[in-house]
Simulated assay, not measured.
Amino acid sequence: MRRIDVITISLGIFATGGIIYLVFQAIGFDGLSAGVWSQALLVIGVLGWTLTYLFRVANKDMTYNQQLKDYEDAVLQKRLEEMTPEELEKLQKDMEEES
């Protein structure tokens, strides 16, 4: 993630907090209650986002892991394409013996 992305996301979260605060004031909350509830919603939102991130990390569903798997698959495919028919036959026999 680039630095400008982080700055944009941070400003977006800050602006969202302000908008939520104004909405709470518009529906009748006093300034203190509106501030508390808007902060509570933002904290819950950030915690929810963090939990989804940790869930993706635990399941290895990250971009890096996917790129690594794609690379490994491509390398194996390339090796298989470069093998002679005799080598492929030998590999198949070895795999049948292991099963």
Rank of each mutant, 00 (worst) to 15 (best):
S38K: 02
A26Y: 02
Y21V: 04
D61G: 04
I27V: 00
G31K: 10
R2Y: 12
T63D: 10
Q67G: 08
Y21P: 00
M62S: 10
L91I: 02
L54T: 12
R79L: 05
S99A: 08
F29R: 05
A26T: 01
T52E: 05
Q77G: 10
L47S: 12
E87P: 00
E98Q: 04
K69V: 10
K78Q: 06
L68R: 13
P85K: 09
T52H: 05
G17R: 05
D30H: 06
G31I: 06
Y21C: 03
D70I: 04
S99M: 13
R3D: 07
R79T: 01
L54W: 14
M95D: 13
I19P: 01
W37C: 09
E86Q: 11
W49K: 11
A26V: 00
M95G: 03
L91Q: 02
L51M: 12
Y71M: 12
M1E: 15
V75P: 03
S10L: 09
W37S: 09
Q67S: 11
R56N: 15
A74M: 07
E72I: 11
Q25R: 02
I27M: 03
K60R: 15
R2S: 10
F55V: 08
E97H: 03
V57E: 15
S99C: 07
V75R: 05
R2V: 07
D94A: 04
Q39Y: 12
G28C: 01
K69Q: 12
L68W: 09
L32D: 10
A74L: 08
L76E: 08
E72Q: 08
E87K: 01
I27H: 00
L76S: 09
Y64A: 10
L76C: 06
T52Q: 02
V46M: 14
I13C: 02
K93I: 05
L80E: 10
L88Q: 14
G35D: 03
D73L: 09
A34Y: 03
I4K: 15
R3I: 08
E81S: 13
S10T: 10
M83W: 03
R2D: 11
Y21E: 00
S33C: 10
N65L: 09
N59C: 09
G45D: 02
D5G: 07
I9W: 08
V6P: 05
Y21F: 04
S33H: 14
K60C: 08
V57H: 14
L91V: 00
G18P: 02
G18T: 01
G35K: 00
E82S: 09
T52P: 04
V43H: 07
V43I: 15
G28S: 00
S33P: 05
K90T: 05
F14R: 02
I20T: 06
F24Q: 03
M83C: 05
M62E: 11
G17Q: 04
K60Y: 10
F55D: 08
I27W: 01
F29H: 04
E81M: 14
S38R: 00
D94Q: 03
V57A: 12
Y64G: 13
M95P: 01
F29M: 10
D30K: 07
L11P: 01
T50R: 14
T63G: 09
E72A: 06
F14Y: 09
